[in-house]
Every structure is written in C-alpha cells, then in structure tokens.
Design a protein around this nucleic acid. Structure first.
Lengths: 340, 340
DNA sequence: TTGAAAGCGTTACCAG
DNA sequence: CTGGTAACGCTTTCAA
C-alpha cells in the first residue's frame, strides 16, 4: 500500500504538481470559494482526484520545505494536574479550529526538563509554544524567543522577558475576593497557606490577601504560612493546630492541592467548617460540593484562559504583536463561609 | 540567526555529512561507546563541533527521509478525564525513556473525531498509536492498521481487530472483587449502575458482577441499571430512590463519574453509607478519602497500564509481535463497606 | 491561470 | 572506516 503523493494526484488529474499544491493549500473564503489562482473547474477536478486516491499531505515534507508545521506545543508543569486537565481540551479545540495541532509535554516543575522539552520543540519545527513557566525557567524560555519561536506564558508571569505573549489570571483580585467574602460574612482573623515556589500566580494571590486585610483594617491578623510540595502533609497538620490554638477564624487556600490537604486534615481531626474554621479554596473539584459542608472556592475561567492563549499565540505566529491578557476569577459560594 | 545544518558541522569537522549523520544517530551502548562504524576519535571531534555550533537535528527532514518520526500518539476519549490524567504522565515518561516523543489528542467518545485524529496522525508520519477506543471506532482503527501503523488498545478491547496490541484491566475480576467485598461484609442485595456505551471495560465489569452474584447464590437479587452520559444526573436520583424502596443494600459503581454522581445524590438527600447503602466505587480520587465516610474503591494499576502500553507499542514499531497484557485491579477498603 | 525546476536537511545506498 | 550522491514529498520562485 504505497503512499499517495502530490505527484500521483497531478498525473491522474493531468495538471502540474504546483497546481495540486495550490489547491490543497487553498483555504475556503466565506463563500466557499477557494482563494487561489486556479481555475475553479481545474480545482474541482484536482480535489476529486485527491479524494478518490486518498491523498494526504506529508507533513514532514511540507514542514521541511516551508519551515512551518502548523503545530504548537503546550508545556504545563504537569499534564495530570487539575488546572491543566481542565484547560487542555479548550486549547486543543481552539487550536483545531484555527488549523493547528497540539503537542503536550510536561516540564515537571523543573527548568532542565523545560529546557529539554523546548529543545525537542525547536527540533520539530514547531511554530509556537504555550508555557506555564517553572520558577527558574527564564533561561530556557529566552532560548526559545532567541530562536524567534513565539511564546505565550499561561497562568504564571515572568518579568523581564521580551516579546512574550501573556494570558494570566488576575491573581491579586482572586486573593482579594477570598478575603472580602470571609470578612463580609463576619470572619476577621483570616490567615493563608501558600507554597514557597517563587511563581507569580501565588505571590500575587498573597498580595491580594495582604492588601485586602489592610483595607479591612485587619492587617494585624494577617499571617501567611509557607510549605513545600514535599512537606505539605505534615506541615498542614501543624499549621492548623497552631492556627486553631490562636483563635484563627478563616483560612484562604490559594491552590487546589493545598485545599485538598486541608480538607483531609480537618476531616481526620474532626474540625468542622465553618464552625471551627471558615474556608475559601481554589480551582474546581467535585470535592467542593461533596465535602460534608460545601466549600466556597474561587474558579478560574479555564475556557477563556485556554482559548485566549491559543489565539494570542497564533496571532504571534502570524507576525502579530505579543499581547497580554488578564482574566477575572469568580467566587462560587458554599457552606464553608456561611454567616458567622 | 541561521539554522546550523549537518553540512555546517561536516565542513567544520573536515568530514563528510555521512559521518556526521552516523555519529548523531549512534546510540551509546552500556560502556558509553558509540555503536557505529566510525573512528572514535573522529566521532569525538564531530560531537565537539556539533556541540560548539549548537547543531540540532531537523526532525522534519529526518522524518521525511526515513519515514519514521520517533513520535507516538496517544488518543484517549478525553484528555481531561480522571483515568487519563493519571496515566498520561506514565506514558510520557516511559516514551521519553525509550526515545520517543508523545502527541496527545482526544477522540471525544466520537468515532468521526477519532477518524480525523488518526488522519492527522498518519499525515504526521507518526510511528504508532495508543488508543482508548470509542464504541464504533473499529473502522477508524482498522484504517490505521491497514496503513501498517502499529496500534495498541488501552483500557478498552475491541474484538476482531488483527495485529493490535492490547493492554487491559481484568475488568471481570474488578467486578467480582467489588461483589466479594460487599458479600464478605454481610451485604446481599447488591445492584449495579452502568453506562450503555457498548465498550468492553464496562461490559466485562458487568459480567464480573453477574458471575459473582451467581457464585454467591444471590443471582435473584442481581440487577443492573443503565444510564447515559447526558441523563446521568436525573437517572441516578431515580435509580437510588427505587433501589432504596426495594431494600437494596449495596451498590457497585464501575466508573469514577458514576461514583461521583451517586455520592452527590446521596449527600443531597441525606442518604448515608454504609448505613443506608454500601458502596464500592471505581478509580482514584481525593473524594473517596474526603467524603463523610471514606469510600471503598477499586483502583487500576495506572503506572503499569501506561508503561506497558508504551512498551508494547515500541516493540511493535520495531517489528515485534502484537502482545496482549491483562493487569489486575486492587481494592482499597473504606468505611462504605463496613461490616453490616 | 499554469508549469518547470530548484531546493529544504536528512538518511540510505553504494563505492572506495 | 569514510565519502559522494540520490532520493524523500513538498512549497516556492520564476517564467510562460
């Protein structure tokens, strides 16, 4: 079963390979007309023959010759993480709609792995990259921009990178919303747990928390506890004990994994929300509706984040400017912040 | 910033392009020796020059010429689904280890989309495909095998497809385990909820359920309720009401989404487990440990499933046989099946 | 509106 | 061990 090439189609349709190439690449405009300098009748014949023979363009060849691949890569830290599971489909759909195929690969929260993956990306003639950057990934990313490969930063910002598109959440606003919600419901001693990761999304949420506490004249109560991925389980037990003993009334948990950990500890120790501790969690999960008390949480506009990042990237690929978009979070109310 | 080609390296190292190609493709054997017919000194020089010039192989060209791409595609029904979120990383890691890059794309439980995606796959010279097949996807898949592209079926079996590798869960055993657990703990009237999807994994779990009920002389109590993705929310309320009114004691839920739905309904209606209804759920989720009562569930060996599927595929790409592997599930005990 | 021909950067083949 | 050279299938001038 030999591969059908453009030449086979050309021979069968009695035209040159050039013509076939034109026809196969022509996009249809709104009237369904092929926008290429080819006689419509000829075009139709070519299309028919191609169909009949089962012709399929060889991407490797096209990519080699044209230097483009109509493929973009998406590099989250972890494909299997909550946030990206929700966003990957949106990215795929939007990319498909714009005529691009998507490549996923994890950077594993590891600048070296990010570097490797970006190397692979460059080696594959990929047209552009969407990255959720790792702390310390500036160098790897600048290597891509140096090679003139368009890059869009998703979810996390890195300062001082030029000509990079950005699609971010208004993380400061997210922090603020969490606090406003709890304060509005009568909680005052509100603390926060965060990761020491050095990534913009978290530090902005912390800023939002601090500013909101200040605006409510509660800054004396403000306190942020820090933990790491590896110690989170042990640390959180400690933190919660400590917090309760100091009469803390509410907790803001700026990521899903922190939220899950806290809920788990509270369940194990019989600590109830909101009676013992009010909670505002982050991202979406069945857990928030299935936990003994439903949990108030802040959700990111995943659909918009995903679609916007693709649109931004494609625009850059087509020599457009590197835009920056900041999207707003939403708060979903639950029992964990019921009126005090 | 011009692209460095193999020719630049050849010129700079005073050797032919052939030599450079040999060196760049040579794999190191266990002693760190390059296994290629090239003078080690020459090889070393070439390697140095390549390094210094920043040479990177152009995959498009290599793929065009060799017909291979060292790339495999993975096509789940939904990238963002629970099962695949957990397995994708394993696949990626194993593939990387074996020198392959991975492409993900969803088939969306839709044979046509699967066909499209497979077309794209073929057009990209991809070396092999791992598919979680859609009901009705036989045709699309056979198109791939007709083109001599190796295919591995993951998670779901399709009969009558030749030369296809398979990596499956022992789904019948999973069903059996669920029932044995509940019966062992004193429950007898045990029913099951399933999807009308026509996929092997579900029907095998149903078989396991039926056989186990028969073995325990409880076949008169056996009953399987069916629902669909679109009606699941409404149907389940109905089913649970009905079941309780008939004195059903336990429920086996053979997928994560069914499990989440049932837990949600039970919570809303204040139905408690195991007091009112014992439960055995499926797959992994934070929910099972965070629900008011911890939930007994059956887990799949995701790591093994992922790794094995890659190994099987790569072996097939290298002209090995199409193997079939069946892996065993495990039961994680929880409060939802406490002794009656 | 059409076609001929020149590559794109590699790998495969055949000679030496 | 090493090197020359012909493909691979396509896009892209350029000329007709």
């Amino acid at each position: 079963m030999k591969r059908i090439t453009i030449r086979d189609v050309a021979r069968e349709a009695n035209v040159s390979v050039t013509l076939v190439s034109f026809v196969m690449n022509a996009k249809r405009d709104k009237d369904g007309k092929l926008d290429c300098p080819v006689n419509p009748e000829t075009a139709k014949r070519v299309l028919e023959v191609a169909q009949r023979l089962g012709y399929r363009r060889n991407f490797a060849a096209a990519s080699l010759r044209s230097g483009r691949s109509n493929t973009i890569a998406v590099i989250p830290n972890d494909i299997s993480n909550k946030f990206f599971a929700g966003i990957s489909r949106r990215i795929e759909d939007k990319a498909h709609e714009l005529g691009y195929t998507v490549f996923f690969a994890s950077s594993d929260e590891n600048p070296e792995k990010l570097g490797e993956v970006l190397d692979a990306v460059l080696a594959h003639n990929i047209d552009g990259v969407i990255v959720a950057p790792v702390a310390g990934g500036e160098y790897a990313i600048s290597k891509a921009t140096d090679m003139r490969v368009p890059v869009v930063l998703l979810d996390r910002d890195i300062e001082g990178l030029n000509d990079v598109g950005k699609v971010l959440l208004d993380d400061e606003e997210a922090g603020r919303m969490a606090i406003d919600e709890m304060v509005g419901k009568g909680y005052r001693k509100i603390e926060m747990i965060s990761y020491k990761l050095g990534i913009s999304s978290l530090s902005e949420r912390e800023t939002g928390y601090r500013k909101a506490m200040m605006d409510h004249d509660l800054y004396d109560f403000a306190k942020i506890h820090y933990t790491t991925y590896s110690d989170v389980a042990a640390d959180i037990e400690q933190i919660i004990q400590d917090a309760l003993s100091r009469g803390v009334e509410g907790l803001f948990l700026p990521t899903y994994s922190l939220s899950a950990q806290v809920l788990s500890v509270m369940k194990k120790q019989g600590i109830q929300t909101p009676k013992d501790l009010a909670l505002v969690c982050f991202d979406e999960s069945d857990i928030f509706s299935l936990y003994a008390t439903t949990v108030t949480h802040i959700v990111q506009p995943l659909k918009e984040l995903g679609e916007k990042s693709v649109e931004t990237l494609v625009r850059m690929i087509e020599n457009g400017p590197a835009e920056k978009t900041v999207l707003k979070p939403t708060l979903v109310g639950g029992g964990s912040t019921n009126q005090r």
